[in-house]
């Protein structure tokens, strides 16, 4: 899809610029039908040349004016100072402060952790979708139950899990009942980030599950039947039939889950941990919000935004590369 749009130049532009008289014949015929403008036939090529630019102009202006220009302003702003040095050029000072700040390095480490946890976040909906596809008892119920959390807002989910994971909450009561010591889910710096990511996965895997189910719909059932007739066990059916058949779906889920993890965990962090304990659950987004609003250091926040932008750009290009490769396999 992407391949087609970007690979070949827009047809109208091509004919207008390159084409000799014969090539523009259909256009000319069209013009002729309008009558009054027939006499200005020699000017047509110029108008034709301009037309595509005029047509793209709104989109380009919107992107340039409302996206790229503010981006340039933001990057420029990140080279100015905060507080007493407001408005003065300070070179790379903000970036030096950033990478010297344990909170920011922690937030970047957490981004890395999210990437490492990505396979788990994809595996869970994948496995559950497989079970539903294989019609485990009660699969109809599970299909809707799994999707249910996806309709709740992060703030509500965060509040629910704040109660469940409180030190004297039900989760620890359950652990106590089976003889395990209490875990300070949101107060232990080694545990909190995993707790928040787990809640995020719980809250969002419904969407990935639906995508997986859609992928299963395209799977050739006769292949699985054939494998079963040949006596393949379930793990082997999954490994050799289902996973290869779903490769494009898996890639799509990987990309969307990654975007979700990097961009939409602010609400959960804000409600569940506030970046703590000991700054262990900071993510760049939260750091930017914190420096801009709570510490009133907008220029430093701009520098952090610029770094996050670069990270997102790299991740985005990587994702495009993956998508393109999957398109080629097709």
């Amino acid at each position: 899809m992407l391949e087609k749009e970007t690979g070949s130049p827009p047809p109208s532009a091509g004919t207008a610029v390159v084409g000799p008289a014969e090539a523009t014949a259909p256009v000319a015929a069209h013009r002729q039908a309008r009558g009054p403008r027939r006499g200005r036939a020699r000017r047509r090529p110029l108008a034709e040349r301009l037309a595509p630019y005029v047509l793209v102009a709104p989109a380009v202006l919107v992107i340039a004016g409302l996206r790229l220009y503010p981006l340039a302003l933001g990057v420029n702003f990140s080279f100015t100072g905060d507080g007493d040095r407001n408005g003065q050029a300070v070179g790379w000072d903000n970036y030096a402060i950033l990478f010297d700040d344990p909170l920011f390095t922690e937030s970047m480490r957490n981004v890395g952790l999210l990437v490492l946890l990505l396979p788990v976040a994809v595996l869970i909906p994948g496995l559950l979708a497989t079970f539903i596809y294989l019609r485990v008892p009660g699969h109809r119920v599970y299909r809707s139950v799994y999707f249910f959390p996806a309709v709740l807002s992060p703030v509500i989910i965060g509040a629910i899990f704040n109660l469940l994971l409180a030190f004297d909450g039900p989760a620890n009561a359950l652990l106590g009942a089976v003889g395990l010591g209490p875990v300070d889910w949101l107060g232990d710096p080694g545990v909190a980030i995993y707790a928040v990511v787990a809640v995020h996965v719980w809250a969002t895997f419904g969407m990935a599950l639906v995508v997986f189910l859609a992928g299963f719909a395209t799977l050739d059932a006769s292949l699985i039947d054939a494998a079963r007739v040949d006596g393949a066990s379930l793990p082997r059916v999954i490994r050799h039939v289902i996973v290869p058949g779903l490769s494009r779906t898996i890639q799509f889920v990987v990309v969307t889950t990654m975007i979700g993890m990097l961009t939409s965990m602010f609400g959960l962090i804000y409600v569940m941990t506030g970046g703590g304990p000991e700054g262990s659950t900071y993510l760049p987004e939260y750091y930017i919000w914190f420096q801009q609003g709570q510490m009133s250091r907008p220029a430093l926040a701009s520098a952090a935004s610029t770094v996050l932008f670069c990270v997102m750009l790299a991740v985005g290009l990587l994702q495009l590369a993956i998508l393109r490769r999957s398109g080629r396999e097709d």
């Binding site: 996206r67 930017i288 801009q292 935004s305 996050l308 990270v311 997102m312």
Partner: peptide, 22 residues
Amino acid sequence: RRALWSTALIAPLALYGCGSAA
């Protein structure tokens, strides 16, 4: 050219990552 297009497509997407509080 393709890389250029990709960048142009991705840049606005990536910008969602760093919207400021208006």
